[in-house]
């Protein structure tokens, strides 16, 4: 995985993706997993999973993100499956760290909405 590719995609996510900032830890975890798994499939030409309403929404978020990545970053057209996997797992880890693990948002773990 290229660190600069990860930086690119992370900066993009910060700027555009509200789904990483949902209300609670479990929402954020679910979104990061759900959306980015779909992004990985789309970037590698696999069929996205669209069986449930939630998966269709992950797909909708992922489609925008994938198209934006392809449009903004020329490296995205030559990326291999291994690189995608490593990029997405790197991004997941970084988002989890920023928005969950080391977030100081005091509401993240409240058991109610």
């Amino acid at each position: 995985m290229s660190q600069s590719h990860l930086d690119d995609v992370f900066a993009y996510t910060e700027e555009r993706c509200l789904w990483q900032f949902f209300s609670r830890t479990w929402d954020r975890e679910e979104n990061i997993e759900g959306v980015l798994n779909q992004v990985a499939r789309l970037l590698t030409g696999q069929e996205p999973v669209r069986d449930t309403p939630q998966e269709r929404l992950f797909y909708a978020d992922a489609l925008t993100m994938t198209n934006d990545i392809r449009e903004r970053f020329s490296w995205a057209s030559q990326i291999t499956k291994e690189e995608v996997d490593s990029l997405i797992s790197g991004l997941k880890a970084r988002l989890v760290d920023v928005t969950i693990t080391r977030s100081t948002n005091r509401e993240l773990t409240h058991h109610l909405y």
């Binding site: 555009r16 509200l18 789904w19 949902f22 309403p53 939630q54 269709r56 929404l57 797909y59 909708a60 978020d61 489609l63 925008t64």
Partner: peptide, 24 residues
């Protein structure tokens, strides 16, 4: 019922929101 957050102010945001809704 899934929750989709969008921004309704701004051209690129509004377009993005519409794209996501339509993709859903």
């Amino acid at each position: 019922i899934p929750r989709l957050d969008i921004d309704s102010w701004g051209f690129s945001y509004m377009a993005e929101g519409i794209r996501k809704i339509c993709a859903f």
